[in-house]
Simulated assay, not measured.
Amino acid sequence: MIKGVTYLITVALLALASSLVSAYDPSPLQDFCVAINNTNSAVFVNGKFCKDPAAVTADDFFFPGLNIPAITTNKVGFNVTLVNVDLLPGLNTLGISLARLDFAPYGLDPPHIHPRASEILVVAEGTLLVGFVTSNPNKLFTKVLNKGDVFAFPIGLIHFQFNIGQTNAVAFAGLNSQNPGVITIANAVFGSYPPINPDVLVKAFQVDKNVVDYLQKQF
C-alpha cells in the first residue's frame, strides 16, 4: 500500500515539475544562442535558429535608443518600446526582455495580460496608478507609484498602468521571457478578426447590442 502511495506521489510531483518547466522559457544549455533568420543553420532553439558562435559580436547583445520617448498622441495616450528577441537577438534562450513605457498626461496602458511572463516595473518619471486583478475571486491589488517606486505583476493576470499626473510619465519594465506576448483585453474582445459573435458579447457583458456594435466599431 505504501509503495503504491509513494508511486502516486512521485508521478504527481513529476507532472507538477513538468508543468512548471513548460510554463516558462527553457533554460539555455550553452553560453548563448544568438537568434538569426537563417534556415540553413543546423541548430534550432526555442523558435529561433542559432548564429554560428564564431560570428557572434557584441552588437548581437546591444540595443540603442531606449532613451528616446515613444509617440503618445494616440487614443489612449500611451506607447511602449519593447526590446524582445526580435530586436535584440542575443536574448534568445535567456528568458528576459525589457520595455520602456511612455505616458502622456492621463495616458493609459489599458488592461492587458502577458501570457508568457511576469513583469516588474519601475517608475522613472511621473506618477502612475497601477494594479492587477487575480483569478477567481477577482480581487484588485492597486497602488500609486512615484519616481523610483517598483511594482510586480504576476504572470497571466490582467493589469494596467495609468498616468494620474499632469505631466508625461516614463517607466521601465523587465519581463521574464524573451517574447512575453501581450493580449490587450478590449482589443481582443471587441477587435478580433473575424469578430466575436455580438450575441456572445451581449450576454457576457450584459449590455444592449447597440453598445456592443459601437465598441466593435471602435476597434
Results as ranks from 00 to 15, higher is better:
Asn163Pro: 06
Gly107Asn: 02
Leu94Thr: 15
Ile120Asn: 02
Phe132Gly: 05
Phe63Arg: 04
Phe141Arg: 13
Gly148Lys: 07
Thr142Leu: 06
Gly131Phe: 01
Ala104Asn: 09
His112Ala: 04
Ile68Pro: 04
Phe151His: 07
Ile164Tyr: 07
Phe141Met: 14
Pro115Cys: 11
His159Pro: 05
Gly90Asp: 08
His112Leu: 05
Ile120Arg: 02
His159Met: 10
Phe132Asn: 06
Phe162Met: 12
Pro64Ser: 13
Gly131Asp: 07
Ala70Lys: 13
Gln161Asp: 02
Ile71Pro: 09
Val123Arg: 03
Gly77Asp: 06
Ala152Trp: 00
Ile120Pro: 01
Lys143Asn: 09
Leu157Cys: 06
Ala117Ser: 14
Ile96Met: 14
Ser97Ile: 12
Pro137Gly: 04
Thr81Glu: 11
Phe151Ala: 02
Gly148Leu: 08
Ala70Ile: 08
Val133Asn: 08
Asn168Ala: 10
Pro111His: 10
Leu87Thr: 13
Asn79Met: 10
Ala169Arg: 00
Val130Met: 01
Ser97Cys: 13
Lys147Glu: 15
Phe141Trp: 04
Leu66Glu: 05
Pro64Lys: 12
Thr93Glu: 07
His114Pro: 00
Pro137Val: 08
Asn67Thr: 11
Val122Gly: 08
Asp86Ala: 11
Val83Lys: 10
Ile113Arg: 11
Ile113Gly: 09
Thr127Leu: 10
Asp149Cys: 05
Asn84Ser: 15
Asn138Pro: 13
Gly165Tyr: 02
Gly77His: 12
Val130Gly: 04
Leu108Met: 13
Thr142Arg: 14
Phe103His: 15
Thr93Phe: 03
Gly107Cys: 10
Pro64Glu: 12
Thr167His: 11
Val144Thr: 15
Val150Met: 11
Leu88His: 06
Lys75Gln: 15
Leu128Phe: 09
Phe162Glu: 00
Asn138Tyr: 15
Asn168Val: 08
Asn79Ala: 15
Ile158Tyr: 01
Gly165Lys: 03
Gly95Asn: 05
Arg100Tyr: 05
Glu119Arg: 05
Asp149Ser: 13
Leu94Asp: 00
Asn168Pro: 00
Thr73Val: 07
Gly126Pro: 03
Gln166Pro: 07
Val123Lys: 07
Thr167Ser: 14
Phe151Trp: 01
Phe132Glu: 07
Pro115Phe: 08
Gln161Pro: 00
Thr127Ser: 13
Thr93His: 08
Ile120Gly: 03
Val130Pro: 03
Leu145Asp: 06
Gly148Tyr: 05
Leu94Glu: 09
Ile120Val: 14
Ser97Thr: 07
Asn74Gln: 10
